[in-house]
Amino acid sequence: MTLKIKYFGMLAEITQCEEETLSFSKGTAADLLKVLFEKHPILEEKEFQIAQNQTFISNDSIISNAEIVLLPPFAGG
């Protein structure tokens, strides 16, 4: 499937990318991370959470949605 990956805050800055598409065969969030780390090695050093359908997912969650969002630590308020 084709995924749309969105990056926010410092992640958009370090990857120099706010949004990109990539093709991904079925798998978990951990599988997707491998692909993303290969593409953007700098991500590996950073702390972030992954959201699918506006809900945080863990490494063993199955990627089933076309839009995945990577969120760095929050700084509201």
């Binding site: 926010f8 410092m10 800055e13 760095p72 929050f74 700084a75």
Partner: peptide
């Protein structure tokens, strides 16, 4: 999910973390 970029007087910046 709100993100904050702290801008310094010399226009450099760092990312704020709560």
């Amino acid at each position: 999910p709100i993100f904050g970029k702290e801008i310094f007087e010399d226009q450099s910046h760092q990312w704020k973390v709560n």
